[in-house]
């Protein structure tokens, strides 16, 4: 019989990315915990329904927050896999009703990945006047052996707010290709922050965050932070389309490249089809300043430690 607990490797990697494990494992805290294609923990709370079905290679699930429900504590999601090889497919759907509030703290952990693929096809539907905060922290181990392909489609209802924070800054990356399409309705607000750090020549990150401001007076900001060192490659595309009067958006990309063979590319794409809309962008790509390095080395850090600290600060 399959062990219905979270393996220690996954718990440890949760700690590595800053998850408060005691909170995540607290029997009373709302959660959905997966180990490969097994559901190892579900805890619902008043107004929060979590349903899941185990598939051959993964899990399909619905997470539903009812109208008027405001969940104070974060809902923990853990998508973990310990084997070094295989394929995991996760198909989650998040439905947040009207006048509701919820925050998700997701932890995707593949600590032993060598030839492992994780695919996610997610959908988020947010009703009117609601708020959804979604944070996803990844840990892919030390072997650059993970291939991670998440695709998300998000609909942000009138006067609602969607905040997404994605970070992959601990351990190696492997291959990551993220695609996110977000549709903002009337007076909706969208904030996307993405951070990725490629540390060696096997690490390749491609992220495409696209926000479509379809509703009147909708607003968005996309903030992308990336670093590539020792041959890593990070390509980020922040797309904002403003298609309604009063829609305003901003794309802000900042990237650091350090070491032979490292490549970063920041591509802000803005498209405006309404003459009462406005989208701005800024992008900066460069190496770590020598003076910053010298300052930290004068405190006793090695050059690599100093680069790491500066990048983590920017992240």
């Amino acid at each position: 019989m399959y062990d219905r607990t979270l393996p220690e490797d996954i718990v440890q990697s949760a700690k590595t990315v800053g998850i408060i494990v005691d909170e995540m494992l607290n029997p009373e805290s709302p959660k959905l915990l997966l180990n490969y294609n097994k559901i190892v923990g579900i805890k619902e709370t008043k107004g929060l329904t979590i349903e899941g079905e185990e598939l051959e290679n993964g899990v399909m699930g619905d997470i539903i927050v009812e109208d008027g429900v405001k969940i104070k504590e974060p809902v923990h999601l853990c998508f973990g896999v310990t084997p070094s090889e295989g394929v995991q497919e996760i198909i989650p759907r998040f439905i947040v009703g009207d006048d509701a509030e919820v925050s998700f703290l997701a932890h995707c952990s593949f600590p032993n990945a060598i030839k492992f693929t994780h695919k996610m096809e997610g959908e988020m539907i947010i009703g009117k006047n609601s708020k959804l905060f979604y944070e996803e922290r990844h840990y892919h181990g030390k072997n650059s052996g993970a291939k991670v392909y998440p695709v998300f489609e998000v609909h942000v209802g009138p006067k609602s707010k969607f905040i997404s924070l994605f970070s992959l800054t601990h351990g190696t990356v492997g291959t990551v290709n993220i695609n996110m399409d977000i549709y903002a309705h009337q007076e909706a607000k969208v904030e996307i922050e993405t951070k990725a750090y490629g540390k060696n020549k096997k690490d390749r990150v491609e992220i495409r965050d696209a926000v479509f401001l379809e509703g009147k007076d909708s607003k968005s900001i996309i903030k992308m932070r990336a670093a590539a060192t020792n041959g890593g490659v990070v390509l980020m595309k922040g797309i904002t389309e403003a298609n309604a009067p009063g829609a305003t958006g901003h794309v802000d990309c900042k990237e650091i490249v350090q070491g032979f063979g490292s490549i970063v590319a920041a591509i802000p794409i803005v498209r405006v089809t309404d003459d009462h809309a406005r989208v701005t962008h800024e992008a900066a790509v460069g190496r770590v300043s020598q003076k910053e390095l010298d300052t930290l080395m004068a405190r006793g850090l090695t050059e690599d430690e100093a680069v790491d600290m500066i990048i983590r600060g920017i992240m």
Partner: peptide, 19 residues
């Protein structure tokens, strides 16, 4: 040199984003 006990406080210190 830093590990030997030499250090410098700069005339115009750099600012570290996020630290």
């Amino acid at each position: 040199r830093a590990k030997m006990g030499i250090t410098l406080a700069w005339q115009e210190p750099v600012r570290f984003e996020g630290i």
